[in-house]
Computed example of a mutant assay.
Amino acid sequence: MDNVTPLGGEVYEIDTRMAGFSGITAGYLILGDRPCLVETGTSTSAPVVRDALTSLGVGPDDLATVVVTHIHLDHAGGVGDIAGFYPSAEVVVHQKGARHLADPTVLMASAKKVWGDRLDTLFGTLSPTEASRIRALDDSDSIDLGGGRTLSSHYSPGHAKHHVGLLDSATGDLYVGDAAGVYLPQTGDVRPATPPPDFDLRTALNSVSLFKDLGPQRLLFSHYGPVSDVSEILDRSAEELRVWVDLTRQAHAQGMDLDHAVAMVGEKTRQRYAAPAPEDAETVRQMEMISGVPFNVAGILHWLDRAEPSSG
């Protein structure tokens, strides 16, 4: 299939074709003794992911585990559907997110407030998963991939309080979710992902530092794809966090409202990133839609209002 890319070590990248576009959100299949899907993508992507797994020889009773780095709908919106397709699979998520997969009512209501009429088109509806099938991870935990191979989970909030990174003992691959930001393979840039309501600068920087200390061989971004320049990209991730926070803090101190802060930060940061080639421009625009300047600035302002209430 043209949306499946072998990455070595029995790992396959799956383009989930979020909202019909390519190169926005990736899931990953670890095809070992106990096949494991990392990230489901959205609900509307679930049939795409199922077809990809079928093409790799994974039938309805073969998938052992579905694990998500966090419960945002572009990563976990398809959990309920995938759980239905694969009745033997255990669903694994950090303990702070588990109840929302069992009962998505609050999560979907919150998403509706953010996305409005675009919710159905972009994400669809997260279906509930039977609580008995959900395994809640502690801050440090392990997932059995069979044959002595494990995915160790590492609590990495900052982007979201229910976020974990996942390290493959066999390959050294680290599934970073959104905690290291959004990687743009079209330009080689990495940009922050700082949405409300959970963003916290110190916690986010600590998560990036933790990822570096784990010594991964490769980073597998949900947005988007594999990166071998581990140290360079993680350093850039931390740098971008600091730059965006400093700029947003300036806007906050000047009493700017959200729209003016977004305009200022957007203008000031634009020069930090390479312009995509014409054939890549649409993909980059779509990525901007799910992790763009307005969401990043809104998340930082939300944090500043709590952390530095005397400003402005």
Rank of each mutant, 00 (worst) to 15 (best):
I300F: 08
E239L: 10
T269N: 05
K268Q: 09
R272V: 09
G255D: 12
G292S: 01
R249S: 10
V284E: 07
Q250E: 13
L301Q: 13
A307M: 08
V265L: 06
T248L: 10
D305N: 15
E288C: 04
G255R: 05
H252L: 01
V297L: 10
D305Y: 14
H252R: 14
V245I: 06
E239H: 15
Q286E: 15
R270D: 13
K268S: 03
H302C: 05
T283S: 05
G255F: 09
E279L: 05
P278Q: 01
R249F: 10
N296F: 01
A263C: 00
P276L: 12
P276K: 10
E240L: 07
G255H: 06
V245E: 12
W244S: 09
A274M: 03
R306F: 05
A238L: 04
R285M: 12
H252I: 01
A253M: 11
A261L: 01
M289I: 03
S237W: 04
K268P: 00
A274G: 08
M264C: 01
V284P: 03
D280G: 03
W244T: 02
D257S: 07
E267W: 01
V245W: 14
L241Q: 15
G266E: 02
Q254L: 13
K268E: 11
P294K: 03
A298Y: 04
A275N: 11
G255V: 06
T248S: 13
Q250S: 11
K268L: 06
H252Q: 12
T269H: 06
M264K: 02
R306Q: 15
R285T: 14
F295I: 05
Q254R: 14
W303G: 03
S291R: 03
G299I: 04
R270Q: 14
H302I: 02
D257H: 10
D246I: 01
